[in-house]
C-alpha cells in the first residue's frame, strides 16, 4: 500500500500542475516510463533501508526477493523510456559525446549504465567472482550514483517539472527520496557508532562454529524475539558496509549480553570467526519474523533446517527450553555429511529437556559407524516420502518453520502443501541471496 502510494506520487505531482501538452503520444509515454522507473528506483531505498515500520508485515528474507523483482521492473521501464525515444524521436536525444551533449542528457545515460551494471553485478556476482563486501560497496555506490544522475537528468530535462506549481512539489518528492538514503547510510550508522558493543568471548562450538558473545557499552538490545537476527559489524566502522546478518542466539530473557553463532563460509565470516575479545562491534537490529512467538497458540512445531539454516532454529529451541515450553517439536535437519552437522550434542542435550524429536537427514552418510546408535537418522534428501514418513500426522496444523538454501525450501514447500499443511502455516527464511 505504502509502496503503491510511493509509485503514484510523482504522477500525482505532475498532474496536479498544468502539464505542458505535446502532440506525440510516444514521447509522452517515454517520459511517463522515465518517471515510473525513477519512482520504482526510489522505492528500492525504502525497501533496503531496514525501516521497521514498512517491513514489519513481511519476512526479512523476502525483501531481497522483492527488491530484485522491482529492480528488474525499474530497469525495464528505463530501457523502455530510452528505446521509445530512440525509435520514434531520435532527434530529441542529441549526441552521445558527453563533451557536446548537455550534461543532463549524459547524466541520464550514466544512470542507465549504473542501473544495468547493478543488475548484472548482482545476478552474476558468483560467476564474476565478486567478493561479497566489494559487491556491496559497488552496489551502494552504483545505486547512489545512478539515482543522483537520474534526478539530475529529470530536473535538467525539465519536462513536467519545470512549471512553478509543480517544481516545489517535485523537489519535495526528491527530498523524501534523499531522506531515505540519508537515514540508511548516515543517520542509522551514526546512531550505531554512538552505541558500541564489545566482544567479550569467542567460543568454539565444534564443527567449525564459533560463538561471539557481545556486551553492550551503551544501550542494550531490547525486545528481540527468538529467531530474529541483527546486522553485526566487528571492528572498522558502522559506516563501512562491512556488516552481515546473523541470528541472535541468546534467548531474549537472558540479556543484556547477546551472542551470535558464526560458521565461516568464506568471504568475511572467516574474519569474524577470528575476532579477538576486546574488539568493538556494532549491532543493528532486531529484524525478522522467523520466531515461535508468532505462533503462541500452536500445539506443536515442525522445524526443517538445511546446513547453517539451523542457527535461527537453535535460537527458537533455546527460547522454548528457557521457558520450559513442552509443546512437541519435530526437527528435520539436513546436511551433506555426518561430520558437518553442527550443534549435534547440543540438540541431543535439549531433547532431554524439552519435547524435541530430531532426525538428521544425511545425504552422503559415512561408510563406517553408520547409523549412529544415539541419534535418529535418515539418508538422502528431504523429499515428499521422507516428510510423510517422519512427520506426525497430527501435526499438519502446526507451524512449519523452515530455514536453509532457497532450492531446498522451494522443493519442500509443495510437498508440505500436498500433505495438507495450510499455506499460512509454512514459514520460511532463505539464506543467501546474491
Amino acid at each position: 500500500m505504502v509502496a503503491a502510494v510511493g509509485l503514484v506520487l510523482p504522477y500525482l505531482v505532475i498532474l496536479s500542475g498544468d502539464p505542458p501538452r505535446d502532440p506525440s503520444l510516444m514521447r509522452n509515454l517515454s517520459y511517463g516510463l522515465g518517471f515510473g522507473a525513477l519512482a520504482l528506483a526510489g522505492l528500492q531505498f525504502a525497501l533496503t533501508g531496514r525501516i521497521k515500520v514498512l517491513l514489519r508485515p513481511f519476512g526479512a528474507d523476502i525483501i531481497p526477493v522483492f527488491h530484485r523483482f522491482l529492480s528488474w521492473g525499474a530497469v525495464a521501464l528505463m530501457l523502455g523510456h530510452f528505446a521509445i525515444l530512440y525509435l520514434w524521436h531520435k532527434d530529441d536525444m542529441g549526441v552521445l559525446n558527453p563533451l557536446a551533449a548537455p550534461a543532463y542528457m549524459t547524466a541520464g545515460r550514466v544512470a542507465l549504465l549504473c542501473f544495468v551494471t547493478l543488475i548484472v553485478s548482482s545476478e552474476f556476482r558468483k560467476w564474476l567472482r565478486l567478493d561479497y563486501l566489494w559487491w556491496r560497496r559497488l552496489h551502494v555506490g552504483l545505486a547512489l550514483t545512478g539515482f543522483a544522475a537520474a534526478i539530475w537528468h529529470v530536473l535538467g530535462a525539465g519536462h513536467f517539472t519545470g512549471q512553478d506549481g509543480t517544481r516545489g512539489l517535485w523537489l519535495a518528492v526528491t527530498v523524501a527520496w534523499a531522506g531515505l538514503i540519508v537515514h540508511t547510510r548516515l543517520i542509522r550508522p551514526w546512531r550505531q557508532s554512538r552505541n558500541p558493543w564489545r566482544v567479550v568471548e569467542n567460543r568454539d562450538e565444534g564443527d567449525d562454529i564459533r560463538t561471539l558473545v557481545l556486551e553492550p557499552q551503551g544501550r542494550p538490545l531490547r525486545d528481540w524475539r527468538p529467531g530474529q537476527f541483527a546486522w553485526l559489524a566487528v571492528g572498522g566502522s558502522p559506516f563501512s558496509l562491512r556488516e552481515h546478518p546473523f541470528t541472535i542466539s541468546t534467548a531474549p530473557d537472558k540479556g543484556p549480553r547477546i551472542s551470535f553463532s558464526i560458521k565461516p563460509l568464506g568471504d568475511d565470516s572467516a574474519r569474524l570467526a577470528r575476532t579477538k575479545p576486546g574488539t568493538t562491534a556494532w549491532i543493528d537490529g532486531p529484524y525478522g519474523v522467523f520466531t515461535v512467538d508468532r505462533e503462541a497458540d500452536a500445539d506443536g512445531f515442525v522445524m526443517i533446517a538445511g546446513g547453517v539454516g539451523i542457527t535461527p532454529i537453535m535460537a527458537n529451541l533455546h527460547a522454548l527450553e528457557a521457558r520450559r515450553d513442552l509443546r512437541p517439536v519435530h526437527l528435520l535437519y539436513a546436511n551433506d555429511s555426518w561430520d558437518e552437522v553442527a550443534f549435534r550434542d547440543e540438540l541431543a542435550r535439549m531433547a532431554t529437556r524439552i519435547d524435541l524429536h530430531v532426525t538428521h537427514v544425511i545425504q552422503n552418510p559415512p561408510d563406517r559407524n553408520w547409523p549412529p546408535q544415539d541419534h535418529q537418522v535418515a539418508e538422502g534428501r528431504i523429499d515428499a516420502d521422507l516428510l510423510a514418513r517422519l512427520l506426525p500426522a497430527k501435526g499438519r496444523d502446526w507451524p512449519h518453520m523452515m530455514c536453509g538454501p532457497a532450492p531446498m525450501l522451494e522443493a519442500i514447500r509443495p510437498a508440505l502443501r500436498q500433505m495438507g499443511v495450510p499455506l499460512g502455516r509454512i514459514h520460511s527464511e532463505i539464506f543467501e541471496m546474491v
Binding site: S24, N28, Y31, L70
Partner: peptide, 30 residues
C-alpha cells in the same frame, strides 16, 4: 511470505507504474 507472492506483488506494482505512465501520456497528449 513466499517468493511467488513477492513476484506477484512486484508485478502488480510494476503494472501500476506502467498504467500511471500510460494515463499521463494520454492526458498530456494534445
Amino acid at each position: 511470505m513466499r517468493p511467488r507472492l513477492a513476484l506477484i506483488l512486484a508485478l502488480m506494482l510494476i503494472a501500476l507504474t506502467l498504467a500511471c505512465a500510460v494515463v499521463l501520456a494520454v492526458t498530456v497528449t494534445r
